[in-house]
Design a protein around this nucleic acid. Structure first.
Lengths: 242, 242
DNA sequence: ACCTGAACACCGTTCAAGT
DNA sequence: ACCTGAACACCGTTCAAGT
C-alpha cells in the first residue's frame, strides 16, 4: 500500500517517451479473492446496507460493472463472503476427553467472529453453508462430536442445533448502533434504558414486566451466552448418554 | 372488500352533474393500521426485498410519499410490522403445573408465525421488541415462567434465551426458494440434494462429512425443533431446580 | 480473457405545493 | 392535518464496445 517506488496518485512525468497507453500499465487482473477482501472491508466499516457493488468497485479502483465478470451477482459475492467468514474460524483437533469444552470453544469462536463482522448474521440467512470453508469447518466440528462418542445422528443434529443456538443468541446482540464507536457500554446503556422503561410501565397492564424489570440488567452477555451453551451442551450430552 | 354498492373500479357515470372534484370523493385518511396491513400483505407475497414504499403505496392507491406522514420512514414501518407480528401470537393463561408444556407451546406458535410471514426474522434483527404488542407478549410469557416457580432472574433469562433459540432455529428454515409454491417437499429435496453432495465429496479431505452424510436427512424439521426445545426447557428447569 | 461507460429500471426520502 | 408529484441521490444489473 505504501510503496514509495510506485506512487499511484502522481501525474505522468513530462517528456513522456512511451505512449500513454503503455504507461498506464495494465493492472493485473482483479481476483475474486481481492473482491471478497474488499467487500468484507466495506462490510465491516459500513454494514450490509452500505455494501454496494459500486463501493466495492471503488475500493478496487474500478467500476461496479467490472466485478460482475468475477462474482456473477451481488448475491454471489455475499455467498463468497459468507464462506470466507466461516473459513476464518479455527476448529481444534479432536480430544475425546474434552469434547464438551471443545464444542463450547467452537461456539465462543463463532460468536466472536460473528460480532467482529458487521451484519454477517443477516448475510447468513437463507444461505446453505456448503462452500469449501463451510465444509472444512463442518467436518472438523463433526470430528469433535464423534470423538465425544455421539452417534452419527446425534453428531449431525448436535452440530446443526449448535449453529442455530449461536446464531439465535448473536442475533439480538447485532444492534444497529450507528453513532457509537465502542460496543460494550452501548449494550449496557441500552439494557439500563430498557429497564427504566419497563419500570415506568403501568403495573396493571404489565404486572410481570414491572415486577421483573430489575432482572433485565443482570449479568453480561458473555455469561448469558455461556449459560445458554451449558444448557445446550449438557442437554445434548444427556440425550446422547455420553 | 366486495361491496356492490360501491364498485371502486367503475368509470364515473355519464351526465355528471357534480363537478369532477366533488365526485372524486375525498378518500378517508389513510391510517397507520392500514399501512401496516398493506405492508404485511406485500411482505408475505414478495418478501422483504420486494417490500418497497412504492409498492405499499400502490396497494393503498397512493404514492410512496404519502406514507411518510404516517410512518416516518421505511424503518419505522418495519418496526410496526415487527410489533404487529408479535402481537398476533396468543399466549395462554399461566397454569403452574404445566409451565413446561406451555412454554413449549409458546415456542411452537412463534415458529409457526415466523414461518408464515416471509423474512420476519430478517426484519427482527437489530430491533428491540418494546412495542405494545411485544410488551404484552413478554409480560404473558414471563407470567408462565413465574407460575412455574422460576426466580426473577431465571424467568427473564429463560424468556430471552427462548427467543434466541427459536429465532436461531427458524433462521435456517428461512430459505430463499423463489420458484416453488409449497415449502415442505422443497426442504426435503434440499436435504436430499445436500446429502448426495456430501456423499460425493473426497473422503480424504472430509472424512466425517462423507461418513455421516446419511444422517443429514434424518427426521423432519418439526421433530428437530421439538428436540431442541426439550433440551433447552429441560436444562432451564434443571438450572432453576423446579 | 478481462475490463469499461453508459444506460435501464428501480430504490428511499425530501420538499414545495396543494387541499 | 393530510396528501401529492416531481426531484435527488443512489441502487443492481446489462450490454455493447473496447483491449
Amino acid at each position: 500500500v505504501n510503496d514509495p517506488s510506485d506512487p499511484p496518485d502522481l501525474p505522468p512525468p513530462p517528456f513522456q517517451r512511451v505512449p500513454q497507453r503503455a504507461n498506464k500499465r495494465r493492472r493485473e487482473p482483479i481476483t475474486t479473492e481481492a473482491i471478497v477482501d474488499a467487500a468484507i472491508k466495506v462490510l465491516d466499516e459500513h454494514g450490509l446496507d452500505g455494501l454496494s457493488m459500486r463501493r466495492v468497485g471503488e475500493e478496487l479502483d474500478t467500476g461496479a460493472a467490472s466485478l460482475y465478470w468475477h462474482v456473477g451477482s451481488k448475491d454471489g459475492l455475499l455467498d463468497l463472503i459468507f464462506d470466507r467468514v466461516i473459513a476464518e474460524q479455527e476448529v481444534p483437533e479432536p480430544d475425546p476427553a474434552r469434547w464438551r469444552e471443545q464444542l463450547k470453544d467452537v461456539a465462543v469462536t463463532m460468536r466472536r467472529t460473528i460480532l467482529s463482522h458487521r451484519d454477517v448474521v443477516r448475510i447468513s440467512i437463507g444461505r446453505i453453508p456448503l462452500g469449501p470453508g463451510a465444509l472444512r469447518w463442518a467436518d472438523r466440528v463433526l470430528g469433535i462430536l464423534r470423538a465425544g462418542g455421539l452417534s452419527n445422528e446425534d453428531a449431525v443434529l448436535g452440530q446443526q442445533l449448535l449453529i442455530a443456538v449461536v446464531n439465535g443468541f448473536t442475533i439480538d446482540e447485532t444492534g444497529e448502533r450507528e453513532p457509537d464507536l465502542e460496543q460494550g457500554p452501548d449494550h449496557e446503556d441500552a439494557g439500563a434504558a430498557a429497564r427504566d422503561y419497563l419500570e415506568s410501565l403501568p403495573p396493571r397492564r404489565f404486572p410481570n414486566l414491572v415486577a421483573l424489570s430489575g432482572a433485565f440488567t443482570q449479568g453480561d452477555q458473555e455469561t448469558r451466552f455461556e449459560t445458554l451453551l451449558d444448557i445446550f451442551i449438557d442437554g445434548l450430552a444427556k440425550r446422547a448418554e455420553v
